[in-house]
Amino acid sequence: MSEVLRVSHVSKDYGTGRRAHRVLSDVSLEVARGEVLGVVGESGSGKSTLGRIIAGFLPPTEGTVEHLAGGPRSVQMIVQESAGALNPRLPVWRSMAEVSAVNRRLSRRLREPSMEYVRYVGLSEADADRRPTQLSGGQRQRVSIARALAAGPKVLVCDEAVSSLDVSVRATVLNLLNRVRADLGIAIIFISHDIAVVSHLADRVLVLSHGTVMEHGPTDRVLHRPESDYTRALISATPSLERRLMHSAEGA
């Protein structure tokens, strides 16, 4: 598979001089077309900062981010609080049409092109005419995904994109993201504190602690044969995942 994104030796400091605080240290990764890379770690590990650098919202202090299949616009970001990412005064279809109306008047003629993505994420014609406050959290997150897809990305950065959703709704959104990568070949960087959620989706996992990569490899290897004490602690702190791994080991 061809690479669509390459991050090389990226570090990030907040502040300058003696007050500088390093939140990322020498992080490197690559993502191929249609691949899902899970990025996990505790709060404060640098996950969100890495995501924002990849999406172009923050500059790295050191290192480079190469968008190998297009410019920065080829990367779209989906965040935890979908309500804040959508204009509360606009109906769903208009929020989506903004993406393709850069130099055009936002008219109703753009509604039908937007509907292609509304339907793809499983929302209805009626949903498209509603405002974000009239939708559930899961519906808003699907709108955020549809809006990102309308920009024609090669990479989606999902930062805690399902952490605030109920379990059943979370599964629906995860299944949708799986479809996105399978149908459209879009690579996904899936950032989460929950290694159990990542295990359902990711091909590879990168484990961060205090801005440093502790482990990086295929999901099955990282979960079943972790190399770092930190990764083992993350797994043991997730009882449902630890039980599942123990059962698979017993059945082997």
Rank of each mutant, 00 (worst) to 15 (best):
Gly56Gln: 09
Pro60Val: 13
Thr61Pro: 04
Glu62Phe: 15
Glu62Leu: 15
Glu62Gln: 15
Thr64Arg: 14
Val65Cys: 12
His67Asn: 13
Ala69Gln: 11
Ala69Arg: 14
Ala69Tyr: 04
Ala69Met: 09
Gly70Ile: 12
Arg73Gly: 14
Val75Ala: 14
Gln76Val: 05
Met77Ser: 04
Ile78Phe: 06
Glu81Asp: 15
Ala83Glu: 01
Ala85Arg: 06
Leu86Val: 08
Asn87Trp: 06
Arg89Pro: 00
Arg89Glu: 04
Leu90Asn: 09
Trp93Val: 04
Trp93Pro: 00
Ser95Val: 12
Met96Gly: 13
Ala97Cys: 10
Glu98His: 03
Ser100Met: 14
Ser100Phe: 03
Ser100Ile: 15
Ser100Glu: 05
Ala101Met: 05
Asn103Thr: 12
Arg104Gly: 05
Arg105Gly: 03
Arg105Ile: 13
Ser107Leu: 13
Arg108Phe: 06
Arg109Phe: 02
Arg109His: 13
Arg109Glu: 15
Leu110Val: 02
Leu110Phe: 06
Ser114Asn: 03
Glu116Ala: 11
Tyr117Gly: 00
Val118Gln: 00
Val118Pro: 00
Val118Phe: 02
Glu125Ile: 07
Glu125Gln: 14
Glu125Thr: 06
Asp127Lys: 10
Asp127Pro: 06
Ala128Ile: 07
Asp129Pro: 01
Arg130Gly: 07
Pro132Ile: 08
Gln134Thr: 03
Ser136Phe: 12
Gly137Met: 07
Gly138Arg: 09
Arg140Met: 12
Arg140Asp: 06
Ser144Gln: 10
Arg147Met: 12
Arg147Gln: 09
Ala148Asp: 11
Leu149Gly: 01
Leu149Val: 12
Gly152Ile: 03
Val155Met: 05
Val155Cys: 04
Leu156Asp: 06
Glu160Ser: 10
Ala161Trp: 00
Val162Ser: 04
Ser163Ile: 02
Leu165Arg: 08
Arg170Lys: 08
Arg170Phe: 02
Arg170Pro: 05
Arg170Gln: 15
Ala171Pro: 00
Leu174Met: 15
Asn175Asp: 14
Asn175Ser: 14
Leu176Asn: 06
Arg179Leu: 06
Val180Ser: 09
Arg181Asn: 03
Asp183Met: 09
Asp183Gln: 05
Asp183Pro: 03
Gly185Ile: 10
Ile186Ser: 04
Ala187Asn: 02
Ile189Ser: 03
Ile189Glu: 00
Ile189Thr: 01
Ile191His: 03
Ser192Tyr: 00
Ser192Thr: 15
Ser192Lys: 05
His193Ser: 10
Ile195Asn: 03
Ala196His: 09
Ala196Met: 08
Ala196Tyr: 01
Val197Leu: 08
Val198Gly: 02
Ser199Thr: 12
Ala202Cys: 06
Ala202Glu: 08
